[in-house]
C-alpha cells in the first residue's frame, strides 16, 4: 500500500508565505543582529591591529570599509536579480517584497563604496574621481538603484508594479559583470582584483583576514537589515489592505 509523503521542500517553501515569513523574521532578526555585532566588533579589533602598508601607509585602513561596501553593492543587486526571477517565473509576492526591500540598502552600500573609494583615491592617486571603467560603472549601478527605487514607488498598487520592476531589475543586472571585469577588460586607474582571483589572493594575510571578517560582518548586516526591511514592507501592505477594506465597508 502506497503511503503519501510530503515533498521535502515544503518546509522551506512555507517561508515564502508572508505571514510565515513574518514569524521566521521575528525569530531570526535578533540572532542575526547579535552575530553581526560580534563579527563587526571582531573585524574592527583586527583592523585596529593591522599593520600599515609599506606603500600606502595608514590609508590602507580605508580598504576595510571600502571593499566590503563595494562587494555588497554587487551582491545586493544579485539578490535583487534572483528576487526578480521569483517574481517573473513564480509571481510570488514575497519575491517582490525582497526586491523592494533590498534596493535602498544596495543604494546606500554603493554610495559608501563610491565615497570611501574617493577618500582612498585622493591620497593614493592624487584625485577624488576619475572617469575610468570601474568607477564609472559603479556610478551607473548607483543610478540604476535610484531608478529602481523611483520605479518601485511609482505604482500605487504594489502588485501592479511587480512585473515592470522585476524586468527592469533583470535588465540592469548586465552592469554587475561589467563592474567585476571592468578592471580586466579596460585599462583602468583602479587596481585589478586582489582577493577574488582565479589563483590565490594577491594580499598579505595581515590585511586579508581583517578584510574577510569585515566582509562577513557587512554581509550579515545586510541580511539583518534586509529581513527588517522586508518585515516593514509586509506590514505596509497589510495596512494598505486593511485601509482599502475599511473604505469599501464605509467605516
Amino acid at each position: 500500500m502506497a503511503t503519501q509523503t510530503k515533498p521535502s521542500t515544503e518546509g522551506f517553501w512555507s517561508f515564502a508565505n508572508p505571514s510565515k515569513f513574518m514569524g521566521f523574521a521575528n525569530r531570526t532578526i535578533p540572532a542575526l543582529a547579535i552575530t553581526t555585532l560580534i563579527a563587526l566588533a571582531a573585524g574592527m579589533f583586527m583592523v585596529l591591529n593591522a599593520p600599515e602598508d609599506y606603500q600606502q601607509g595608514s590609508s590602507v585602513l580605508i580598504m576595510f570599509v571600502h571593499v566590503p561596501a563595494a562587494w555588497l553593492s554587487m551582491m545586493i543587486y544579485t539578490v535583487m536579480a534572483c528576487s526578480a526571477v521569483g517574481t517573473i517565473v513564480w509571481r510570488h509576492p514575497l519575491a517582490d517584497v525582497s526586491l523592494r526591500a533590498a534596493a535602498p540598502l544596495g543604494a546606500v552600500f554603493t554610495f559608501l563604496a563610491l565615497v570611501t573609494g574617493s577618500l582612498w583615491g585622493k591620497p593614493m592617486w592624487g584625485t577624488w574621481w576619475e572617469w575610468d571603467a570601474r568607477m564609472t560603472s559603479v556610478l551607473i549601478l548607483l543610478i540604476i538603484y535610484l531608478g529602481l527605487i523611483a520605479l518601485s514607488r511609482a505604482f500605487e498598487e504594489p502588485a501592479e508594479g511587480a512585473q515592470p520592476l522585476a524586468i527592469m531589475t533583470l535588465t540592469g543586472f548586465i552592469i554587475v559583470p561589467v563592474i567585476k571585469f571592468s578592471v580586466n577588460w579596460w585599462n583602468t586607474l583602479h587596481q585589478p582584483a586582489s582577493v577574488m582571483r582565479f589563483d590565490r589572493p594577491a594580499m598579505d594575510a595581515a590585511f586579508l583576514y581583517p578584510l574577510l571578517v569585515m566582509a562577513i560582518g557587512y554581509s550579515l548586516l545586510f541580511f539583518t537589515l534586509h529581513f527588517m526591511s522586508m518585515r516593514n514592507e509586509i506590514l505596509g501592505r497589510r495596512i494598505r489592505t486593511m485601509k482599502i477594506a475599511n473604505a469599501q465597508e464605509g467605516r
Partner: peptide
C-alpha cells in the same frame, strides 16, 4: 590613524553614520 587620518577618519565616520541612519 597615521598621516592619512584626515582621509581614514571621514571614511569610517561616514560609513558608521550612513549605516546608523539606515538602521
Amino acid at each position: 590613524f597615521g598621516k592619512y587620518a584626515s582621509f581614514v577618519v571621514p571614511a569610517y565616520a561616514l560609513s558608521m553614520l550612513a549605516l546608523a541612519i539606515v538602521i
